[in-house]
Amino acid sequence: MDPRPIETALRVDVAAATTPDELEAVRVKYLGRKGVLTGFLRAIGQVQPEERPRLGAESNRLKTLCETLLAERAAELGVGDEVAYQRPIDGSLPATNGSVGRRHVISQTFRRIGSILEGMGYRLARGPEVELEYYNFQALNFPDEHPSRDLQDTFYVSNDILLRTHTSPIQVRFMQENKPPLKVYAPGRVYRNEAIDASHQAEFHQVEGLYIDTDVTMADLRGDLLLFLRELFGSDIQVRFKPHFFPFTEPSVDVDMSCFSCHGHGCAICGQSGWIEILGAGMVHPNVLRAVGIDPDRYSGFAFGVGVDRIAMIRYGVPDIRMFLTNDLRFLEQLTER
């Protein structure tokens, strides 16, 4: 009994099999109940007893070899893969669980604004939401007992502690701790004690921008805002500066941008005017600089404040500011923008 011809035939047969079915036939030919190797094992009983151990070992070797060769060839032919694919009863049936998560539209807008400003050289600064009256008003040149304080209805915790009405106190804190040149943006939640309706919420969100250096001019303000708004709303956006009043800037500016939807022709979004009031800005008031020990004769700078909720409402056509805090999933799930 010579195992060598069997081995040769096995190798040839395995190599010759080109489909899983042919390979299966090879398996049956050698390992089946009436297979070649099964026959070889049975035939060992017929030989001389002293020959048996050697032939038994040969038989085992052949069987292992056969299995190995079959498995290797099966892998080459992708047999196992096909078996795995054939398992499901119908692969078009719905998948098992896997829910889709989303960012809140306000976070998304914060991120978008933040990444644009970081690209323009602004870095992030933050400050407390429960704030000292000093930072929220006094250091920002709101005189005591002055009607300018009526511009921002305020929640008070005590005489000298309040809920910040804007993100501007962060600029004061930052300027106290850092020396010019400085260029920062300050995102966060702010509070106003206002009657709530479709366009007013007692809690909303702002991003403040601040740039202080020697010779920062109103032209730089205009340029930075133009870059910022074009990045946010489109490259054909125009801006329009109107004089305004904020206690902490002089000159102060009300900034309009041309309507991104109708390109200035007039539509429902811009109230037919072609322009949308988008933010407030101005050159930092010398009193604000003095209060933090920056010499207004040496340094100048600008600040601007953007309403994040307002940006999101305009960008996504959200009709009611209250939707942002209601957390209706039917709302949260529709405004994902990556």
Binding site: G121, K183, M218
Partner: peptide, 28 residues
């Protein structure tokens, strides 16, 4: 500064910044 704003208002905010170029002196 208050006079600067008066000058700016009459001069026209829209006439400011026509020749502006981006610059920043602070790395983010």
């Amino acid at each position: 500064t208050d006079l600067v704003e008066e000058v700016a208002r009459v001069y026209g905010y829209e006439n400011i910044g026509k020749g502006w170029r981006f610059r920043t002196t602070v790395p983010s």
